[in-house]
Design a protein around this nucleic acid. Structure first.
Length: 266
DNA sequence: GCGACAG
DNA sequence: ATCTTGTCGC
């Protein structure tokens, strides 16, 4: 697919100030509202995907293409995989790679892993209708997490699914309170989000899976946030639709497994 | 100086 | 993210 904003290619050689300046520009270009033709039912995946190898199904029709993206790391490079899914089946898989030049710095994740993602998406032939990224989107100090960065870079609808909260505050404490499967709690901007007023809804905690007995064992909720061209509530609706019994939505779960074994070989 | 901290 | 086996719970 094509880079719509080449100037936003994440360059690890930039200094921190330039990276932050770019993120402010990206946030200004990002659209945190629905600008797509997706519906939860059109992207729904109800069976766990077992066959991760791309297979051209006989009748996968012309439904929307959801692409799951994830990274893994080796000594000196980041490996990325983009798994394209349509009708609950993998139709294409693209790999990418990039040298690891900077350490992980909270808030600047895209400059460490973004080049590998761009490399993977560059070789993807199908046109994605939605990118599901590993990490945050609008839940970010400058509202420009990796999901937003990648979405704006290619001008494609995107959202982020993270396992931990980077910044922002849930409207009601999620700790120690039992969240049943399907529940969501809005996350609002706080002082650590410097580009929008406190209280702005920037994402959700979403409980994709939960155990019966809250006393002994519990699953942590996912942290979902819009990346680009998707509204907050819609982002969570779409993630909910692509979950098939596991904690992670199928696109990221499959990408996770794929990139793991790819990084381990050669 | 102290806390906060996606992957 | 990554280094790693068994183990507790449903």
């Amino acid at each position: 697919m094509d880079l719509v904003r080449p100037g936003y290619l994440p360059d690890p050689a930039l200094d921190a100030d330039a990276m932050e300046a770019m993120q402010r520009d990206i946030a200004a270009d990002a659209v945190f509202a629905d600008e797509h033709d997706l519906t939860p039912s059109a992207v729904a995946i109800d069976e766990p995907i077992r066959e991760t190898a791309p297979s051209q199904a006989t009748l996968d029709g012309g439904g929307p293409v959801v692409v799951g993206i994830d990274q893994a790391f080796r000594e000196e490079e980041a490996v990325s995989v983009a798994v394209a899914i349509r009708g609950g089946r993998v139709i294409e898989r693209a790999f990418g790679r990039a040298p690891l030049e900077i350490p992980y710095i909270p808030g600047l994740l895209a400059f460490r892993e973004g080049a590998a993602i761009a490399d993977a998406l560059d070789s993807l032939t199908v046109a994605p209708d939605l990118l599901v990224c590993d990490g945050s989107g609008r839940i970010h100090y400058r509202e420009a997490g990796i999901a937003t960065h990648v979405g704006v870079l290619f001008d494609v609808p995107s959202l982020g699914v993270a396992k931990n909260l980077l910044c922002g505050t849930p409207v009601e404490p999620v700790e120690d309170r039992y969240m049943a499967a399907g529940e969501r709690v809005a996350i609002e901007a706080n002082d650590r989000v410097e580009t929008c007023p406190n209280g702005t809804t920037i994402g959700h905690f979403y409980q994709s899976r939960q155990y019966e007995n809250p006393e002994r064992r519990h699953v942590n909720p996912l942290v979902v946030s819009p990346g680009h061209r998707v509204a907050t509530g819609t982002a969570t609706d779409l993630v909910a639709a692509t979950c098939a019994g596991y904690k992670l939505p199928e696109p990221t779960r499959v990408a996770d497994a794929d990139v793991g074994e790819r990084a381990r070989e050669e």
